[in-house]
């Protein structure tokens, strides 16, 4: 490497990025209620404590419903917007796309409190469904970003060939375009699921009495004796997140390779 100083700095920075997460498994397996060094011994009892907590399972079940629905709805909405923005020029496009992408920079507190005010004003009761409405809003920009790069790498002549061969626009979309952007769709589903699963403030404001996983974890931090079990849960969640992301990245790359492009950039 030509720049050893820069290389060393970048490695130190990566260490800083990974340091907190590296502590998770250490304390999840540490035989002490106190989260501090020195370590006192190896145990798996925090994992069984986590496993036997019925309120954790209730929160997990709710989160699966919310994140699963969010992933599907946000990806469908993302497909419409990404297709429109890559394929068509229309007046007001910058403004419309700006509004759709706005939740990416808006503080989540603003999204959460404005939805709370509006949903209550509309007479809706808070439930898992109101969380899904909020999470779809937050996840759609991620879906649009991923799917836009998938649509951009499409070779337009494939589509024209299908139309010339007598396919309708709808059947062309189904038979030619959809299979080519399918990896992008899978990546979008996985990313939206992960974002929704981790989201806290909207879930806290809009879930009513239904516990969600992030809100459950937040509540557990108030009881020091429950924290080691949260470390165990966090270890499992990080492992699952990394697997889902690796899968998303794999599908995104495969999609770009399939359409003849080269993989660059990241998720955002």
């Amino acid at each position: 490497m030509k720049a050893p100083g820069l290389y060393g700095y970048t490695l130190a920075y990566l260490l800083f990025l990974y340091a907190p997460i590296a502590l998770l498994p250490i304390f999840a397996f540490n035989d002490s209620v106190v989260i501090a060094f020195p370590l006192s011994g190896f145990t798996t009892s925090w994992f069984s404590a986590m496993w036997e907590d019925s309120s954790m399972w209730q929160a997990l079940r709710n989160s699966m419903i919310v994140s699963g629905s969010t992933a599907i709805l946000a990806t469908v909405l993302g497909l419409f917007a990404a297709r429109a923005s890559t394929r068509h020029a229309f007046p007001g496009k910058a403004g419309i796309m700006g509004l759709i992408m706005l939740p990416l920079v808006l503080p989540e507190m603003i999204v959460a409190m404005s939805l709370l005010v509006a949903l209550l004003a509309a007479g809706l009761d808070l439930s898992l469904w109101t969380v899904i409405l909020g999470h779809v809003l937050i996840c759609t920009p991620f879906a649009v970003a991923i799917l836009t790069s998938a649509f951009q790498s499409l070779d337009r002549s494939l589509e024209e060939a299908a139309l010339d061969l007598g396919e309708t626009p709808v059947s062309t979309f189904r038979l030619v375009i959809l299979p080519l952007v399918a990896p992008g769709i899978v990546a979008s589903l996985l990313i939206c699921f992960t974002v929704s699963l981790d989201e806290f403030i909207v879930a806290y404001f809009l879930a009513g009495t239904e516990p969600l996983l992030s809100v459950y974890i937040y509540g557990q931090f108030r009881f020091p004796s429950n924290v080691p079990a949260v470390m165990a849960l966090g270890t499992v969640l990080v492992a699952v997140s990394v697997l889902l992301l690796a899968a998303a990245e794999y599908f995104r790359r495969r999609g770009i390779a399939r359409t003849g492009g080269s993989a660059g950039g990241g998720f955002v």
């Binding site: 990566l14 990025l17 990974y18 907190p20 997460i21 998770l24 992960t194 699963l197 981790d198 806290f200 992030s214 974890i217 937040y218 931090f221 949260v230 966090g234 969640l237 990080v238 997140s241 990394v242 992301l245 990241g266 998720f267 955002v268």
Partner: peptide
Amino acid sequence: ITIPFWTSYII
């Protein structure tokens, strides 16, 4: 670089 970002924010 992005992996740590995708793990639970509150954790």
